[in-house]
Nucleic acid binder design. Structure first.
Lengths: 140, 140
DNA sequence: TTTCGTGCAAAGCATTTGCAAGTAG
DNA sequence: CTACTTGCAAATGCTTTGCACGAAA
């Protein structure tokens, strides 16, 4: 069980109710939400929250390395709670992003062809097993 | 030597001067340009060209599979002329994108954990060898 | 009091859309 | 004539910025 409050305190971030909610939501549902998804969910419980605060908080979390941005869809940033290194699969049908654990030597290298590698990330795109299942049902 | 005109004709696209220029530029410099970079370059030779035409043409090329979008920087789409499968390294200092040839079994799979994989892309970020070289010079 | 956090409104950018005028066959 | 292409201008959508109010130490 992860303690959200301690994560913020360890990073030197004051744990306000807004920040706790934002970090909790980006972690709990494991759905790699957009800023809009986070806002729409939290505004139900904290009606006074603004999008500015969501963006401010996410920016702060990124600076501290607590969340990472995923540029997988092209039109909007998805936020990923940082745990252990992993990769992502984006379903073009339902828009869901799955975590993938992939073993490959290149993903452990610090240098490649003279370049210093600070981040590496496997992006996969296609149709997820759930959506494939629905297609089969339709046809039968 | 690639014949740009034939590529367009084979794809069923009428090779107008604008489209030829756009495709030529996204291929020749091998710099994975943004729409703005393409526009700024071409407007020097064809002063009447509009950004709309650049976007229209790129959309058409993507629909035909002639170019692919790269969502590597987060703030803008970079366009990649499609040749053989490869991966990308983005330099945070100079913004340049390098092609990488990486061998890894996962990048050849069509299915993974039940998902249908249509595209896969290894995405690396850090500091390129040129910028590393410049840093060393400064310090000495 | 001084600093920090919040949030409204406006601005900024990349991209898309509506539509009118031009071109090719 | 008909279908396609171009390009201006306006709109859209995500994100950032300016600024003022309010809370905390």
């Amino acid at each position: 069980m992860i303690n959200i409050k301690i994560i913020l305190e360890d990073a030197g971030i004051k744990p306000t109710i807004e920040r706790l909610s934002i970090l909790k939501y980006s972690n709990s549902k494991n759905n790699h939400p957009t800023a809009a998804m986070i806002f729409n969910e939290i505004v139900k419980k904290i009606p006074t929250i603004s999008k500015t605060t969501v963006y401010n908080s996410l920016k702060l979390f990124m600076a501290k390395g607590i969340v990472t941005p995923l540029y997988i869809t092209g039109s909007e940033v998805r936020y990923d709670f940082v745990t252990k290194p992993h990769h992502h699969f984006f379903c073009e049908k339902c828009g869901k992003i799955y975590d993938l654990e992939v073993e490959c030597p290149i993903f452990r290298k610090k240098h490649f062809q003279g370049h210093l590698i600070k981040q590496q990330h496997g992006y996969f795109r296609g149709i997820c097993k759930d959506c494939l299942g629905k297609e089969e049902k339709k046809q039968s």
